[in-house]
Nucleic acid binder design. Structure first.
Lengths: 158, 158
DNA sequence: GGTCTTTGTAAGTTATACTAACAATAATAT
DNA sequence: ATATTATTGTTAGTATAACTTACAAAGACC
């Protein structure tokens, strides 16, 4: 996983006056989504430096906690990932003993995923860090704007 | 670069009823940004399958076109990337003969970046594809909502 | 029973984002 | 003016993640 950025980000990508001048590209919605995603990703990584978990990994832990016995394809659907990518992430979390795979009894092809105690503990710490991260993110918006932003973004990913 | 997704996405990550049930995680802004970014990235890749260019690569071509003689650090600042990542992208575009590096005369440490004719041609085709991609993205919003969305996203990446 | 589909898996490719270390050049301090 | 520090590009190495293709096992369907 990526190591914390901290000072490095500040050094290599300072936000100096004039940065706003990015020409006509500034009217492209996709460009702003990519930049915003990058900023959120970087701050997330900083916040999670000690926990050694990525955004994806936390989301997966969270979803498994919300949906015990979920299969990998279920995860893939909810995360909009393909099976191979899901495998890679589940493998990493299994290697850390945060979850277990058990053959589903209702469908022998499926693996039922569940958190271990370690996984639940990690998720609970992660949720606290997420809250901190969300505060950083939400601090620049009013309550109403947050609701609006979520509504607009949801329309993109359906 | 990633290959086109097309049918694969539809097969492995169908949007079936019930997907909306993602538990309490749905109130996390960061989660929606990541999903929206993923959706945009996938559609972008489909649209650009024939052009063999990624989002980042197009953005870099675009910025160099808007800012002739820009240095790699200048690119890094505007794209919020570090120097090493910028190198990798510039290397790829140079290998395709889309740009040239020339030692800056004002500062011997810097490389002045400029598009070649091939690069300008590729960018011009890319812009047409971007327009198509943006239409897909904007089709779910009113003009006012697009403006609002850009404004909100810009507040995140500053 | 035989065929098709779904699910998990493995192996390989590519893009991206870091880190750390180094050399060349520029800027600054003494 | 010289010595020190900072900036810029560079290379090499690591990790995440998104794909591809191919295959085996299990289920669904005829």
């Amino acid at each position: 996983m990526p190591k914390p950025l901290r000072d490095t980000v500040a050094i290599t990508t300072p936000h100096v006056a004039g940065d706003e001048d990015i020409g006509e590209i500034r009217n492209i919605v996709g460009f702003h989504i990519r930049l915003a995603h990058g900023a959120v990703y970087r701050h997330f990584t900083e916040t999670f430096a000690d926990l050694d978990l990525t955004q994806k990994q936390v989301s997966v832990l969270w979803l498994i906690d919300d949906h015990p016995d979920i299969a990998q394809t279920g995860l893939a659907q909810r995360m909009r990932m393909d099976r191979a990518t899901t495998m890679a992430i589940v493998n990493r979390l299994e290697a850390k003993s945060y979850l277990v795979r058990r053959k589903s009894r209702s469908d022998g092809r499926k693996q039922a995923l569940n958190l271990t105690d370690r996984g639940r503990k990690a998720l609970s710490m992660a949720k606290r860090a997420i809250h901190q991260h969300e505060q950083w993110l939400k601090s620049r918006f009013t309550e109403k704007e947050v609701t609006k932003l979520i509504e607009l973004l949801a329309r993109i990913h359906q």
